[in-house]
Amino acid sequence: MEVRTIKVFTTVDNINLHTQVVDMSMTYGQQFGPTYLDGADVTKIKPHNSHEGKTFYVLPNDDTLRVEAFEYYHTTDPSFLGRYMSALNHTKKWKYPQVNGLTSIKWADNNCYLATALLTLQQIELKFNPPALQDAYYRARAGEAANFCALILAYCNKTVGELGDVRETMSYLFQHANLDSCKRVLNVVCKTCGQQQTTLKGVEAVMYMGTLSYEQFKKGVQIPCTCGKQATKYLVQQESPFVMMSAPPAQYELKHGTFTCASEYTGNYQCGHYKHITSKETLYCIDGALLTKSSEYKGPITDVFYKENSYTTTIK
């Protein structure tokens, strides 16, 4: 009895394709271990004539594949690729409408935090270190965002349907971005203890939790000093293409032309909904596939993004 075979390709990165001759009487799992086709788990399936010449994702289970996976995804987590594939199996079914010149995501599976993050990423200057993220990001900007969303979920250790947080998501993504040249110098002034300067680099240099107003941050924000008295913390120097200011959701007025974009969060910790506000020729609110415009805006804002380049204080 002759062994019926077909020729397929296996890959971990969709760049390096490895030619395989597979036995049609055995499952993919018996031949390769966990195997995925377009995100779908085909591990328990036997090869079919229609699979001839198709590319299958496999887990990096030998040295060659491990090197290829690390170079593309910059992670050695053995569960990463499987999590990416199972997320992709959902995100490829989502709709990605162009809204006001940006790629958004039609609401499904509690994905409003991903839509808000995706919209924000198209408006701030950011370059990702893992080629996987950078490639998928370019495709997302062009309207094909399924891979990018699935990668975000995998890097953030999230599953489809789980509630997510924009600030946490951005923080994970910033860790995989090139923020080497970003720098922030802060000064804390206390009447009792004097003053202390701190220099922050990388992710810490672009994120701040405690106030939404970048102007206020430049002037000074009140913080408790270690001595128990009130101290003032203010920005001395900022070198970065953008800054992200966050605070627990509270009524906040966004003035046209003073910011790049913002995240609105309605609801409580267990259950809520994100919308995205962007400042173009007027203010726009993007909620999944829905767009509304207004000249002014007041609502429960939790993150505001500002364009920056270089700032030095005039406070002496």
Score class of each variant (00 low, 15 high):
residue 4 R to I: 14
residue 7 K to Y: 11
residue 8 V to I: 11
residue 9 F to Q: 14
residue 9 F to V: 07
residue 9 F to C: 12
residue 11 T to F: 06
residue 12 V to Q: 08
residue 17 L to N: 09
residue 17 L to H: 10
residue 25 S to D: 09
residue 29 G to N: 06
residue 31 Q to G: 07
residue 33 G to L: 05
residue 34 P to E: 15
residue 35 T to W: 06
residue 39 G to T: 13
residue 40 A to N: 13
residue 40 A to K: 13
residue 41 D to F: 06
residue 41 D to V: 08
residue 50 S to R: 12
residue 51 H to F: 06
residue 51 H to T: 03
residue 52 E to M: 11
residue 54 K to H: 15
residue 54 K to F: 13
residue 56 F to N: 04
residue 56 F to M: 12
residue 57 Y to I: 11
residue 58 V to M: 08
residue 58 V to G: 02
residue 58 V to I: 11
residue 59 L to C: 12
residue 60 P to E: 07
residue 61 N to T: 14
residue 62 D to I: 07
residue 65 L to D: 07
residue 68 E to K: 09
residue 68 E to A: 06
residue 69 A to K: 06
residue 69 A to L: 11
residue 70 F to H: 08
residue 75 T to K: 11
residue 75 T to Q: 09
residue 75 T to P: 05
residue 80 F to W: 05
residue 81 L to I: 08
residue 81 L to R: 05
residue 85 M to A: 05
residue 86 S to A: 15
residue 88 L to V: 06
residue 93 K to V: 09
residue 94 W to H: 01
residue 97 P to V: 15
residue 97 P to F: 08
residue 98 Q to S: 08
residue 100 N to S: 13
residue 101 G to R: 05
residue 102 L to Y: 08
residue 102 L to H: 07
residue 105 I to Y: 02
residue 105 I to M: 04
residue 106 K to E: 11
residue 106 K to H: 15
residue 106 K to L: 11
residue 108 A to Q: 09
residue 109 D to G: 03
residue 109 D to C: 04
residue 110 N to I: 00
residue 110 N to E: 05
residue 110 N to S: 05
residue 111 N to S: 04
residue 112 C to H: 03
residue 112 C to P: 05
residue 115 A to I: 04
residue 116 T to K: 00
residue 118 L to A: 05
residue 119 L to Q: 03
residue 120 T to F: 05
residue 121 L to Y: 04
residue 128 F to A: 02
residue 130 P to R: 03
residue 133 L to R: 03
residue 136 A to W: 07
residue 137 Y to W: 10
residue 138 Y to R: 14
residue 141 R to N: 08
residue 143 G to Y: 02
residue 145 A to T: 02
residue 146 A to T: 05
residue 148 F to C: 04
residue 152 I to N: 00
residue 154 A to G: 05
residue 154 A to S: 07
residue 155 Y to N: 03
residue 156 C to P: 06
residue 157 N to E: 08
residue 160 V to H: 01
residue 163 L to Y: 14
residue 166 V to M: 08
residue 167 R to I: 02
residue 167 R to F: 03
residue 168 E to N: 09
residue 170 M to A: 02
residue 173 L to T: 01
residue 175 Q to Y: 08
residue 178 N to L: 05
residue 181 S to K: 10
residue 182 C to L: 02
residue 182 C to K: 01
residue 183 K to S: 09
residue 183 K to Y: 15
residue 183 K to F: 10
residue 185 V to K: 06
residue 186 L to I: 13
residue 187 N to F: 06
residue 188 V to E: 07
residue 188 V to A: 06
residue 189 V to F: 08
residue 189 V to S: 12
residue 190 C to D: 00
residue 192 T to P: 04
residue 192 T to G: 13
residue 194 G to E: 00
residue 196 Q to D: 08
residue 196 Q to E: 10
residue 198 T to K: 14
residue 198 T to L: 12
residue 199 T to F: 07
residue 199 T to H: 11
residue 202 G to V: 02
residue 203 V to T: 09
residue 203 V to A: 10
residue 204 E to N: 08
residue 205 A to E: 01
residue 206 V to T: 04
residue 207 M to H: 06
residue 208 Y to K: 00
residue 209 M to Y: 15
residue 209 M to C: 13
residue 209 M to F: 14
residue 213 S to M: 03
residue 213 S to W: 00
residue 214 Y to R: 02
residue 215 E to H: 10
residue 215 E to F: 04
residue 216 Q to W: 03
residue 216 Q to K: 12
residue 217 F to D: 00
residue 217 F to G: 03
residue 218 K to P: 01
residue 219 K to W: 05
residue 221 V to Y: 08
residue 222 Q to M: 12
residue 223 I to W: 10
residue 224 P to G: 08
residue 225 C to K: 01
residue 226 T to H: 14
residue 227 C to P: 01
residue 227 C to N: 02
residue 228 G to P: 01
residue 231 A to P: 00
residue 231 A to G: 05
residue 233 K to D: 00
residue 234 Y to D: 02
residue 234 Y to N: 06
residue 236 V to Y: 08
residue 239 E to D: 09
residue 243 V to C: 06
residue 243 V to W: 00
residue 247 A to M: 06
residue 250 A to C: 15
residue 250 A to Y: 08
residue 251 Q to C: 14
residue 252 Y to P: 00
residue 253 E to A: 13
residue 254 L to E: 00
residue 254 L to R: 00
residue 255 K to G: 07
residue 255 K to A: 10
residue 256 H to V: 15
residue 261 C to D: 01
residue 265 Y to Q: 00
residue 266 T to K: 10
residue 266 T to V: 11
residue 268 N to M: 07
residue 271 C to F: 13
residue 272 G to S: 02
residue 274 Y to H: 00
residue 279 S to M: 07
residue 280 K to G: 11
residue 282 T to E: 13
residue 284 Y to M: 11
residue 284 Y to I: 15
residue 286 I to F: 08
residue 287 D to N: 05
residue 297 Y to H: 09
residue 297 Y to F: 07
residue 300 P to N: 13
residue 300 P to H: 12
residue 302 T to N: 02
residue 303 D to G: 00
residue 303 D to T: 03
residue 304 V to M: 00
residue 309 N to F: 11
residue 310 S to T: 15
residue 312 T to E: 13
residue 316 K to L: 15
residue 316 K to G: 15
residue 316 K to A: 15
